[in-house]
């Protein structure tokens, strides 16, 4: 009998820690975008890239079982994108994302969007080294999605309710959806966005700016600690 007391996810978590350290080192805000298929993740990214208008370096990792359609759509905006095809796989893992980062060649102090495979179950279990998970829920889905797929909404820091331009045609109850999400995750942020009309995009960009400042503040603290150690070693 051998006691090993090891986390099953240790291998993935090791790769995730390495990714996180690299991203931190380059002052990059990395976000893991998760949703069901068809929530409008790629359209939201295209609209986000346009809204940022070259103000920050942006790069995108696209995860899908097959095709490079999504990466092609992102590249058409002039932003570097890499497509990861998971084949039979239902999620991205930290090892795949590490390789994708190698090929992307990140620019410092920007944003890396990782668009996960459209799936509200499996991606919840895999840390990719991101700063936060962002769940995107379109208003053409049910307002009870957070209750049906609680692990994903529990793991996410922000829920974006997308396609709000369609609300006049639907019976979707925004308040009920927000209450369901907060029941699963009392601290989750919630934004209302229409990638199509641009409504709410300014709030999303503000959220990105705030998270990016928090990441940069941490990178600055690490760099300052390093400088202090070096000064001490130099006898200053």
């Amino acid at each position: 009998m051998i006691e090993i007391e090891q986390n099953i996810m240790a291998k993935n978590d090791g790769y995730a820690a390495r990714n996180r350290q690299r991203l931190q080192g380059t002052g990059t805000l990395a976000l893991n975008l998760v949703s069901s298929p068809g929530s409008g993740k790629t359209s939201l990214l295209v609209a986000t890239i346009r809204a940022l208008a070259g103000r920050l370096p942006v790069a995108v990792i696209e995860g899908d079982q097959q095709t490079s359609n999504d990466a092609d759509r992102i590249r058409a905006t002039g932003v570097p994108a890499i497509q990861v095809n998971t084949g039979k796989g239902c999620h991205l893992d930290a090892h795949m994302v590490g390789h994708a980062i190698d090929h992307l060649g990140l620019t410092d102090n920007g944003i890396l969007f990782i668009e996960n495979v459209g799936n509200l179950v499996c991606p919840a279990a895999f840390d990719l080294g991101e700063e936060a998970k962002v769940a995107i829920l379109s208003v053409t889905e049910g307002e009870d999605k957070p209750l049906k797929y609680p692990d994903m909404f529990a793991a996410s820091s922000l829920m974006i309710l997308n396609k709000t331009d369609l609300l006049p045609h639907l019976d979707f109850d925004m308040a009920a959806c927000a209450a369901n999400a907060r029941r699963i995750n009392p601290t989750i942020d919630i934004l209302h966005v229409s990638a199509r009309t641009g409504e709410g995009l300014a709030d999303w960009v503000e959220w990105l700016d705030n998270r990016r400042k928090a990441v940069l503040a941490r990178s600055i603290a690490v760099a300052e600690a390093q400088v202090a150690r070096l000064r001490l070693a130099a006898g200053e």
Binding site: M1, R182, R183
Partner: peptide
Amino acid sequence: TRRDIDCPGCGGARVTVTGGDELRIKDLEV
């Protein structure tokens, strides 16, 4: 056993899960 639960003490709905995410290999017979 679920995330969408009210507090059994005060009935409040602002409840957060703090444990139960174990995924561990405990021991082996070899």
